[in-house]
Write a protein that binds this DNA or RNA. Structure first.
Lengths: 146, 146
DNA sequence: CGGAACTATATAGCATGCTATATATGCTGC
DNA sequence: GCAGCATATATAGCATGCTATATAGTTCCG
């Protein structure tokens, strides 16, 4: 059992993503939040409101996935949907006051986990990592529509 | 909707992992394989056989997750379980001939996707990325028993 | 030997993500 | 104005991952 796959980029990225998410889940649990809530939560905090489709695009998630995440967030009292009278297909998603109160603590948690990840690494490690991942992801995005 | 989260390490890692996995799923589909099969498949190809627990440890996945993945792989005719007579709790998981035939093609696919990810990047980008992710993941692994 | 502690695997229940497809509403050109 | 296309959201069905817990077999100790 000496064999291991920890020298393959694809594998290590997946592994690291899972470690990150687990850590985040753990930190967010006491606040009643799940890690998948974070991107829409922070996006809504910054924009004040957005449709489901806009949110999905902003955080690079498919629309059906965002639909489910928002449903859970609604169930947990974090967002509400304000129907758009001008276009009855749409609804503007907004944070509840409860969610808005949580935002600063959530941002603090996210920051501290990011910092913990880079502890003992050079100052430019975060920027470097993010840059490399960005380029790799762009390289792998579906080729059609360049 | 100018706001975006693509400058947070946690977010970008998650995003990149999903892009990677989607691409892998797409490439493996014609072979009748799923991306989660890859780590156990290649581990078994290298070792000749392992128990479920050994596999889970080797690829950094929880045991219940590995149990389900192996069940799907068995369903798809890729692995078989050879009961261990000396210890009836255990079974040695082995690749079927069908799976063994696929291994070279799978390795080729995995390699070419990894290469595509780093296209246009400096030669040391893969090593650098893997190193950074390794350190980050280790930093975030549960502290107890660290 | 027999029960307690340990180990290997299985199951339950849930979250998160995907693709494919349905539904409901809006828009456009005849 | 309405048929047909476009857009927004919802649903179905599945894979992958996690935690918590159950079950079954092994080991160890008195």
């Amino acid at each position: 059992m000496n064999f291991n796959r920890f020298d393959s980029a694809g594998f290590v990225i997946n592994w690291c993503a899972r470690v990150f998410e687990r850590r985040m889940a753990e930190a967010l649990r006491p606040l009643g939040l799940a890690p998948a809530y974070l991107p829409p939560l922070l996006t809504l905090a910054a924009t004040g409101g957005a449709t489901q489709g806009e949110l999905a695009k902003a955080v690079a998630i498919q629309q059906p996935t965002m639909a489910l995440t928002l449903r859970r967030m609604e169930r947990d009292g974090l967002v509400m949907r304000v129907p758009d009278k001008a276009d009855q297909r749409r609804a503007i998603v907004r944070l509840t006051p409860k969610a808005e109160e949580l935002v600063p603590r959530v941002e603090g948690l996210a920051r501290s986990i990011n910092e913990a990840a880079f502890e003992g690494l050079p100052d430019d490690a975060p920027a470097q990592l993010i840059d490399l991942l960005h380029r790799a992801a762009h390289n792998l995005e579906r080729p059609e529509k360049g």
